[in-house]
Amino acid sequence: MAPSISIREHIRWLPDPASEPTTTLVLTSAENRFVDIRILKPTHSPSTESKREDVLPLSHLDWAFAGTSTSVPQRGEDGKAFAHSTWKHWVSSKTRDVDGVSDEGDMFPLPEGRVLEKGRMSNPATGVVTEYEELWFDPPFRVVEDGKGDGEGERGNCCVVLQLQDDEHEARGVVVRVGQYVQGVLRVGEGFSLERWEWKGKGKDEGWQRLVRMGDLWLPCGPAMDDGRLKEEGEVKYGEYLWKVVELSYF
Rank of each mutant, 00 (worst) to 15 (best):
R155G: 05
G127D: 00
E154W: 06
K118M: 12
L58P: 06
N157Q: 14
G153P: 06
G153Y: 08
V128M: 04
R96M: 14
H89I: 15
S69E: 14
T130A: 15
S85W: 06
A66I: 02
M107G: 00
D166P: 09
P109N: 00
V129G: 05
D146R: 01
P140Y: 14
D97Q: 04
A64D: 03
V98N: 02
P124T: 09
A83Y: 10
C159Q: 06
E154A: 09
P109V: 01
Y132G: 05
T130R: 09
R120W: 07
V91A: 09
Q74Y: 07
E117I: 00
A64H: 03
L110M: 04
D150M: 10
E112P: 01
V72D: 00
V101Q: 08
G119Q: 02
D150I: 07
T70H: 01
C158V: 09
C159W: 10
C159N: 11
D103M: 05
H60D: 07
D150S: 04
K80E: 13
C158F: 08
T70W: 00
T86A: 10
V144M: 02
D103E: 03
F82D: 05
P139V: 14
L56T: 07
R142A: 12
V160L: 04
W90P: 11
A64S: 05
L61R: 00
H84M: 08
V161N: 01
H84V: 08
W63H: 03
K94H: 13
R52P: 10
H60T: 15
L135M: 14
G156K: 10
D138I: 15
A83W: 11
K80R: 14
E117F: 00
V161I: 03
P124I: 09
E53D: 12
F65G: 01
E131V: 10
V72I: 07
F137R: 14
T86E: 14
T86K: 13
C159M: 08
C158E: 13
S92C: 11
R75N: 10
W90V: 15
D62Y: 14
G127M: 04
D103Y: 11
L61W: 07
D103W: 06
L110V: 02
S102E: 10
H84T: 11
E134Y: 04
E131T: 11
P109I: 04
F82V: 03
H84S: 12
P139W: 13
D138R: 15
E152V: 09
S69M: 12
A64P: 02
A66L: 03
V72P: 02
